[in-house]
């Protein structure tokens, strides 16, 4: 293997370095679909380098729409998006798409090549990598998600957990700065959830995770952002959010039955509340 493996350092620093621009800077972002339906009404969101943030919100709150702005699939109606200081726009689209790795909810949407290895090679090949360099990048990404031995298998022969990890590898192969995951835990069995969490926690990237799975958000993301009615409604520590039943109810968020988030609060949290 060459270069730095994506799974190199565990526990990335949560404190953004002042010298580097934040990974994600969204300011005043508004967007309406061509049919006139406005979804985003001025979103402001800054995510520092190495931060892990959960993006929560009820269905239809505009989470997916926001995410599709991060790599320039959708163009901002108003406001702007910067990734690592670079403004998202037509000119720098290839670099933006390298910096932002988007993992879609259904791995079958992401994995379209006949074999896992070829699929993982798709992104870096679009970046211009060829030959041994490309092979090395594929090996590196597959090793990071523990699928090295599945390189030549067809995606439909893998389990859902394996396919989701393979989908993750397809974007890790582009060495993104920001990893955006859409509902990464949906339909996974508990072992698949844990395996994915272990991998995600070991990555040295900025992480933005769209989810309805509040315990998973708690496990992976110290910070949570709730998108509600097309704006950022809440932005704060995940533990505090989950311990506030009123706040959750206001944004149509619910913890699974039997889950008591109050037990998570430390004494200092309680003192603040």
């Amino acid at each position: 293997m060459t270069g730095t493996p994506p799974g190199g350092r565990p526990e990335p620093a949560s404190v953004p370095s002042p010298a580097q621009p934040p990974s994600v800077e969204v300011s005043g972002l508004a967007f309406a679909y061509p049919d006139g339906r406005q979804v985003l009404f001025g979103v402001d969101l800054t995510i520092g380098r190495g931060e892990r943030v959960a993006l929560l919100g009820p269905n239809g709150a505009g989470k997916t729409t926001l995410v599709l702005h991060l790599n320039g699939i959708l163009r901002a109606g108003a406001g702007e998006v910067r990734i690592g200081g670079l403004r998202v726009g037509k000119r720098d689209l290839p670099e933006i798409r390298r910096r932002v790795g988007l993992v879609f909810q259904d791995p079958d949407d992401q994995l379209f090549m006949p074999t896992v290895g070829e699929d993982v090679a798709f992104g870096p090949a679009n970046l211009g990598l060829r030959g041994a360099e490309l092979t090395a990048r594929v090996d590196e990404a597959l090793a990071a998600v523990g699928l090295s031995e599945h390189r030549d298998r067809a995606p439909h022969h893998l389990s859902l957990g394996e396919r989701r990890r393979a989908a993750l590898a397809t974007v890790l192969a582009m060495r993104p700065e920001v990893l955006v995951l859409d509902e990464p835990s949906s339909n996974l069995d508990p072992a698949g959830r844990r395996e994915l969490a272990d991998i995600l926690l070991g990555l040295d990237v900025t992480l933005l995770m769209v989810t309805h799975d509040l315990p998973y958000a708690l496990q992976l993301c110290p910070r949570s952002v709730v998108l509600s009615g097309g704006v950022v409604g809440v932005d704060g520590p995940t533990r505090r959010l989950l311990a506030d039943p009123e706040l959750l109810a206001r944004h149509r968020l619910e913890l699974p039955f039997g889950f008591d988030a109050r037990a998570l609060l430390t004494e200092s949290d309680v003192a603040i509340t």
Binding site: I73, F104, D106, F112, M113, G117, N126, R130, V171, M174
Partner: peptide, 24 residues
Amino acid sequence: ERGERVHLAMLSRGYTGSLPVGLP
């Protein structure tokens, strides 16, 4: 609809209209 989602996922990985050559 799946076709559209697949296309979005391809665009997100820098697809510009030509499929790159596969693994050697």
